[in-house]
Simulated scan of single mutants.
Amino acid sequence: MLVRSTLRSAARTRRGRAVADNLVAYGFMAGGITCFALFSWYPLVRGVLLSFQQVNFVTDPEWVGLDNFAALFADRLFWIAWRNTLLFTGLALVFGYALPLAIAVLLNELRHFRGFFRIAVYLPVMLPPIVTVLLWQYFYDPGNGLFNTVLRGLHLPESAWTQSSSTAMLSLVLVSTWSNLGAATLIYLAALQGIPADLYEAAELEGASVWQRIRHVTLPQLRFVMLVLLLLQIVATMQVFIEPYQLTGTTNPDTITVMVLIYRYAFTVNHDFGLAAAMSVLLFAVLGLFSAAYLWLTRERA
Rank of each mutant, 00 (worst) to 15 (best):
S5K: 13
T13D: 07
R15M: 11
A18W: 14
A25P: 09
F28K: 04
A37G: 12
A37W: 02
A37P: 07
W41K: 05
P43Q: 09
V48H: 03
V48K: 05
L49C: 05
Q54T: 09
D60V: 10
P61Y: 09
P61M: 11
P61T: 07
P61C: 09
E62V: 14
V64M: 06
G65A: 11
D67V: 03
A70T: 14
A74N: 00
L77W: 13
I80N: 04
A81C: 09
A81R: 08
R83T: 13
N84I: 05
A98E: 04
A98H: 10
A102N: 01
H112M: 11
M126A: 15
M126W: 11
L134H: 06
W136S: 00
W136H: 00
Y138L: 07
Y140M: 08
D141W: 04
D141S: 08
G143F: 12
N144V: 07
G145H: 10
F147E: 06
V150R: 13
L151V: 05
R152C: 07
G153W: 14
L156D: 05
L156R: 15
Q163H: 14
S165R: 03
S165E: 13
M169E: 04
V175Q: 00
S176G: 14
W178D: 03
S179K: 14
L186W: 06
Y188I: 12
A191C: 10
I195M: 06
P196D: 13
A197S: 15
D198N: 08
L199T: 01
A202W: 03
E204W: 08
E204G: 01
S209R: 07
V210S: 00
H216T: 02
M226D: 00
M226N: 03
L229Y: 06
L230E: 00
L232T: 04
L232G: 04
Q233L: 02
V235Y: 04
A236Y: 12
T237G: 03
M238Y: 04
F241E: 04
P244T: 06
Q246T: 14
N252I: 12
P253D: 09
T255A: 01
M259V: 13
Y265E: 11
N270C: 08
H271D: 13
D272M: 05
G274Y: 10
L282R: 05
F284C: 11
V286T: 02
L287G: 06
L287H: 08
L289K: 02
F290D: 11
A292N: 11
A292C: 05
A293T: 11
W296I: 02
L297A: 15
L297T: 07
E300F: 12
A302C: 08
